[in-house]
Structure formats: C-alpha cells, structure tokens
C-alpha cells in the first residue's frame, strides 16, 4: 500500500508544510479488502485481562515499560470480555475455573482469538493432577501456544507476533 506522495501527486510538489495532505488531498488508495481488514485487526487487538497465576506477572511485565506491548496496539487491557478480542489465558486453569473461562470466552464477540500462555495453560504444565485442566484447549479453541514457565515477556511478544502472522493469512469468503 505504499505510495510516494511527492511523485504521484503533482499538486503538493513544492509544498513544504504538506498542508494539502493534511486537508485530505492525498488521492485514492486501492488494496485488497482482506489486507486492510487484517491490518486493522492486528494493529488494534485488545487483550482481555485473564491473568490467573504466575504468568500474569510476566504478562504485566510485558505490558510495563521494559517490554512494552503498547507498541503493538495493545495499550488497553480491557477487563470486560465484551470489549476485547484477544484472550491471553495466562496461568493454570483449575477445574473450578474452567466453566468461568468458557463463559467468558462465549461472551467475547467475534472475531476472537486465544493465546494460551505458559505451560500450564498449554498442557497442564508441572501439575498433572486432579485439580488442573490439562491444557486449556479442552475448554476453548486455542490459536497460539506460548511455551515457558513462565514465558519471558519477549516470548509472549513473539507469540503475539505469530498470532498477527496468522491473522494476516485469514481470508474472506463470499457466502451465498
């Protein structure tokens, strides 16, 4: 979607303050609708706060100043599932919590994605017993699994980048 303003639009040549661009006289851009929609979705994905245990502390660390997640558009962590589109399941999901998790996932509007952060959410982790759900994909469909106990903030950001790659591959289908 790159256009060269100076070359393609003769009306702004010799205009140092770029005032014509600012008034909206850039021209017409054409692109595939898939690309535009996926670009919008990846760059403004709002995660839902679902920090359960230790991975939540690393998720908070990823949100904080050292490994900033706001650079990827995730400035806000919405507490309400109705206003978010990414659920990062960070931490171990116990059998008491599993119905709550499913209920919150159902309350999120489409399109929604799930990142399973950490070993406990991906496969039960260190805990193979009666109390922990062995992998959160028993409850919700997962898009990206991030390994680690807890995964470094950089690993989480890599997981989010992978999810962005995955979203960019999504294609629309004409129904009917």
């Amino acid at each position: 979607m790159g256009i060269d303003l100076q070359k393609d639009n003769p009306s702004i040549q010799g205009d140092p303050t770029n005032s014509t661009t600012k008034t909206g006289n850039v021209g017409v851009v054409t692109a595939r609708i898939d690309d535009v929609v996926n670009w919008a979705r990846t760059n403004s994905m709002w995660p839902m706060l679902f920090g359960l245990a230790c991975c939540a502390i690393e998720m908070m660390g990823a949100q904080a100043a050292n490994y900033d997640m706001s650079r990827f558009g995730m400035e806000l962590m919405r507490a309400s599932p109705r206003q978010s589109d990414l659920m990062i399941v960070a931490g171990r999901v116990s059998r008491k919590m599993a119905p709550v998790l499913r209920r919150l996932y159902d309350q999120m509007p489409d399109p929604k994605w799930v990142i399973s952060m950490g070993d406990c959410a991906s496969c039960g982790g260190v805990f193979n017993n009666y109390a922990i759900v062995q992998g959160v994909d028993e409850v919700v469909p997962v898009d990206v699994y991030v390994a680690g106990c807890p995964p470094r903030p950089e690993a989480l950001i890599h997981g989010i980048m992978t999810l962005h790659e995955k979203v960019k591959q999504e294609r629309f289908k004409l129904v009917g």
Partner: peptide, 22 residues
C-alpha cells in the same frame, strides 16, 4: 477449595492423584 459439588476428599491417601497418563 474444591467446587461446591465435588465428590470425595482429595487429600486422603485413598483418593487417586487423577493424573493424565503421558
């Protein structure tokens, strides 16, 4: 600690660990 309708008392020695076999 357990859900209110759980059956059994987990820390008893005759209660199984309930692990998933690899």
């Amino acid at each position: 600690l357990m859900p209110h309708d759980w059956v059994g008392h987990p820390l008893r020695k005759d209660y199984p660990l309930g692990y998933e076999e690899p």
